[in-house]
Design a protein around this nucleic acid. Structure first.
Lengths: 219, 219
DNA sequence: CTTATATACAAACGTTTGTTTACCAGACCC
DNA sequence: GGGTCTGGTAAACAAACGTTTGTATATAAG
């Protein structure tokens, strides 16, 4: 996991300093935001002095970019795995997606929030990379929603409204729910992250009007 | 509306400088965050020099506090009005709450986002004020949810789960949906803020399992 | 006219910022 | 031993920070 820079795969006693800087910086960006977090605070949290950061990263911005890149790669991978686990029924796919995304943002809420809020402070080309990754995640949800509507598993027709709710709007609503759960959830409230993810999956299925099907247990 | 400081109620040609500073600061806090926004940028946007800000506010923090206070007062007032308009049926109350909150955060997304994200940079007692206001908003939603469950209008029992979804969890999910809509919504996408608010109200009613009742038109 | 008040300005304050530089201790290879 | 590399240190850099100061000007009151 932690690949030390040049050693021949012998695991170092402590996590490598490069990795340590990433973790402490993520925590500080989460608490205070990127601009208010100084290089001196980051390095002090790692037990070294300011100049040392530049042995591992070219700038403070580069540290932020590394954090965001890792978070987005991991979340995309996790969602695609969940999609496969859902089989070919859109409702089961959607439930898996919601579960996985909620779990990711509760278990790794520090990186999750930083990735959502601090990309503005990156140079434009790197900021665009982050936005593209967010768009890919959204597309995964939109495709599953469309599949569920086409197969008649989801129902989004408001009797008081001219047309059905738009798929992109529904996808955004679901994403905002799952992503922001990480901001308030604390595992000490008598509710585990797993239980929260299950409740969210249930709520989202109700939200898209997924009728309980034969084969799903009924209470 | 804009009360100029000393004139005898004759409307000034331009909005007063105190108000102007508030608006420009809000926009800059929204774009770059509080710590990355300098006093010089704020005052330059108002066409004056840095020192002039201190004729109107005691510090940069005080500007942030004024923005947050105004936003929270307005949103609480709007929600309570919506609650009254909903009558005594919990489903109609909930629909009004969702509509109003979504509208507020789309029409005033700048203040809305700043209020949600920048309170960390306030001194502890003022930060607590903001958190208290957020808690009051959450309670409004929780009470309406409880009323709907007690009167049987809402249904939150997951057949695959031991108990029903917790009211506080459902309230958070709804709040995250509405509040964050302001971050991505742009009125140029062929969807007005009103239509978005209506769709969200519909989605939330499905989410809480509100059965369409006699008297609501069916398509 | 005189006086007071509000608000603008330019300039400076001490501090902190991200980053660079020059130097040094230890590990490894031959 | 000597040579090279890695990754640390202390000190310095210009630039930018929030804020204070002294001063000018315009408006309104007495």
């Amino acid at each position: 996991m932690t690949r030390s820079r040049k050693t021949t795969d012998g695991a170092p006693a402590t996590t490598s300093m490069s990795r340590r800087i990433l973790d402490e910086a993520a925590r500080l960006f989460y608490e205070d935001g990127f601009p208010a977090t100084t290089v001196r605070k980051i390095t002090a949290a790692c037990g070294v002095t300011a100049g040392s950061l530049y042995n591992h990263y070219g700038s403070k911005e580069e540290v932020l970019y590394a954090i965001l890149k890792r978070a987005h790669e991991d979340s995309e991978r996790i969602l695609e795995e969940g999609l496969l686990r859902g089989g070919d029924r859109a409702d089961r796919q959607l439930a898996e997606l919601v579960r996985e995304l909620t779990l990711f943002h509760t278990e790794r809420r520090i990186e999750g929030l930083v990735a959502r809020t601090e990309w503005r402070h990156l140079p434009p080309d790197q900021a665009k990379e982050v936005l593209d990754a967010q768009q890919r995640v959204r597309r995964i949800f939109e495709r599953t929603l469309e599949r569920g509507l086409n197969t008649g598993r989801f129902r989004l027709n408001d009797p008081r409204s001219p047309g059905p709710a738009r798929v992109d709007v529904v996808a955004k609503a679901i994403l905002d729910m799952c992503i922001n759960a990480g901001q308030w959830f604390r595992p000490d409230g008598g509710l585990s992250a797993q239980e929260l993810a299950d409740q969210y999956a249930f709520l989202v299925l109700q939200l898209v009007g997924a009728a309980p099907e034969a084969g799903d247990r009924e209470s």
